[in-house]
Amino acid sequence: MAQGVCVITEFREGKFRRVSFEIASEGRKLADALGEPLLAVALGEGVEAVASDLGGYGVEKVIVVDDALLKDYRAETYVPVVAEILQNLSPKVILTAASVDGKDLSARLAARLGAGLATDCTELQIEGGGLKAKRPMYAGKAFAWCEWSDGAWPQVASCRPNVMDCLAPDTSKKAEVEKVEVALPAGNLTQVVSIEKDAGGKLDLTEAEVIVSGGRGMKGPENFAMLEELAGILGGTVGASRSAVDSGWRPHADQVGQTGKVVTPNLYVACGISGAIQHLAGMSSSKYIVAVNKDPEAPIFSKADYGIVGDLFEFLPAFIEEVKTLKSTC
């Protein structure tokens, strides 16, 4: 009989990723609702040393496999090991991170275990003794509540990073660590060949989650430094409107719009851009749009979730300070 909640952690370069703590915290909540234990599986090189820390987030017991072969995530080593552990543990609910590796792992585990998987969940609850998961669809234009069929254990869900609350760790608590020795398959079906830092470090517009864009309202190329700074803090990149590009302030590669790049970041900050349709066509699918413009009639405001009517040269420095403060506290 299936029992308990099990979280699969991610351990890289000597420490757990933050998302592991998030799913542990979420797992604790679910385990409490079920009245069942919270377990964790931790694989990695050197993970044994810190595995008990998971107790601070409510994990009762951690199954650990510590091996140099587990330094990086590779399906051929991770999947059979984790699947075997899980088959032995037989948990009701399995949580993973919806990271690049976590997505691969969760989908493979689900296929191997014949389980149902809900990916990229933003909210989880226990209802009728089982899991109920909320997840975005249609690029966030809708949310689905997923439920598992009767008796379809385990219920696997991957959790979107940075969404679920992370408990403040109770460092006094340590989890029980059970080290498992398994014969790791010496598979080398996939491997990382190299990692190449991007030249100039500029993230491509089409890949950026956050874009800070400037238009003619920036008044000159020198003022884009402000946008660079903001984009830097937000982990994003800088874009530009056609008129800013036409004026020679920014290269054409930065142009967002009908004849430039079509972008869909989570956050698009339009500074001094009036929002002609050729620009809107390139960015209106962004999840959240912020507009800063002195002209309250500018069409960009009709598309903006948050509009700031005013002088961007006053507003942006203040905003940058606020974001800096926020980033330093979390």
Partner: peptide, 23 residues
């Protein structure tokens, strides 16, 4: 094994919302 049992739309976002106050 798993299926969507209900769907909901995100709360209608008020495009064109302008923030008030000083800078």
């Amino acid at each position: 094994k798993v299926s969507v049992t209900s769907m909901e739309l995100p709360s209608e976002r008020q495009a064109g919302r302008v923030l008030e106050g000083d800078t």
